[in-house]
């Protein structure tokens, strides 16, 4: 296992370039539109789950309302492009910023809350957004939703085929990974993690935890909004049912299954859950039972998720015996 890790680290650049090449060429290999749709769904959920992972995985705040931020992004895009004729490219960042603002506002009263209380507030927020979307008919279309959301146009070409749209979604995820990995390698990322690990110690070292929790929430919400805005034209139609709590829980399941607090985890989680959902479709509603069993089994066998390290905080705080012994003997 360690050998594998070392090889990966050694040829990191090579692996990244090879991975990028595969991703860029994927639409040429997958010719059927149906399959490409699945790939696009994986990308959408991978980004949504990743945005949630920023909050849950890195700063350890239990947010259950990611569907709310996703909805804010999607509706902003749908309303401004469909009803006001704005260009998608202008709307996109605006939607992200609006979701970020929501994230900031939600974070304010929740700064003093932890664990289950924070979960309730975020859950409530998500439902409020959904109910507004359902009832504010003049703006959101109410139960009818918003239809015919225009596709983004790039170089005069309308991106409506999943094969083309794939690149927008891929770019979103890659941009997210690039920016986030940079933040995580700075004092901001370290501050987030220190809050997750031991907030009292973080405070004693001068980390303004309120500020950093807020920033963390805002940043996570921003990306949920961005992917929401990219999602709306892709499905061409939004209504409130797409943003139920289930959507938030799906994202959470992906984060948990893939591995919290790692960049790759939510992406793996998204692939796994999507593949499972599609391949178990013939079981109809019974697939949810299978789905639940898998999550329970996961929590049992590998609580840190597929990509999580065996010594991550989620592995139940198990500290590896061997390395501890090594430390003791080296200390002598």
């Amino acid at each position: 296992m360690k050998k594998v890790k070392n090889t990966i680290v050694k040829y990191k650049l090579f692996f990244i370039l090879a991975g990028l090449a595969i991703l860029l060429l994927l639409p040429l290999v997958i010719t059927k539109s149906v399959y490409m749709r699945h790939v696009c769904n994986v990308l959408i959920f991978a980004t949504l789950a990743s945005s949630l992972n920023i909050i849950n995985g890195y700063s350890g705040q239990m947010c259950l309302g990611q569907a709310g931020f996703f909805a804010v992004g999607a509706y902003t895009c749908a309303i401004l492009t469909t009803n006001y004729g704005w260009s998608f490219w202008v709307v996109w960042p605006v939607a992200g910023c609006l979701a970020a603002l929501m994230g900031y506002l939600v974070s304010l009263p929740t700064l003093r809350l932890q664990g289950i209380y924070l979960s309730f507030v975020t859950l409530g927020f998500s439902e409020i957004i959904r109910i507004i979307a359902q009832t504010w008919t003049p703006v959101t279309g109410g139960n009818m939703g918003i239809k015919g959301i225009p596709f983004p146009i790039i170089f005069g070409k309308e991106l409506f085929k999943p094969h083309d749209y794939y690149y927008i979604l891929l770019a979103t995820l890659l941009l997210f990974l690039f920016i986030t990995s940079r933040i995580l390698r700075s004092r901001i990322g370290r501050a987030w993690i220190s809050i997750r690990e031991e907030s009292n110690a973080a405070r004693s070292l001068g980390v303004e935890i309120s500020r950093y929790k807020s920033m963390n929430f805002t940043y996570g919400a921003f990306w949920a909004g961005m992917i929401g805005a990219a999602y709306a034209p892709y499905v061409n139609f939004v209504d409130s049912s797409q943003f139920s709590l289930d959507t938030g829980f799906d994202a959470l399941a992906m984060v948990v299954i893939g591995g919290q607090g790692t960049l790759i985890g939510p992406i793996i989680g998204s692939v796994v859950v999507t593949v499972l959902t599609e391949s178990l479709r013939f079981l109809q509603y019974w697939r949810f039972v299978i789905y639940a069993l898998i999550i329970i089994a996961m929590m049992w066998v590998r609580p840190q998720g597929i990509a999580g390290a065996s010594n991550s905080i989620l592995a139940g705080g198990k500290i590896r015996r061997s390395s501890r012994k090594k430390a003791i003997s080296r200390n002598r």
């Binding site: 370290r190 993690i193 690990e197 031991e198 110690a201 973080a202 004693s204 905080i313």
Partner: peptide, 12 residues
């Protein structure tokens, strides 16, 4: 300060 009950960022 340091803490009597050690408060490290254990998994860092």
């Amino acid at each position: 300060r340091t803490f009597q009950n050690i408060q490290l960022f254990k998994f860092m």
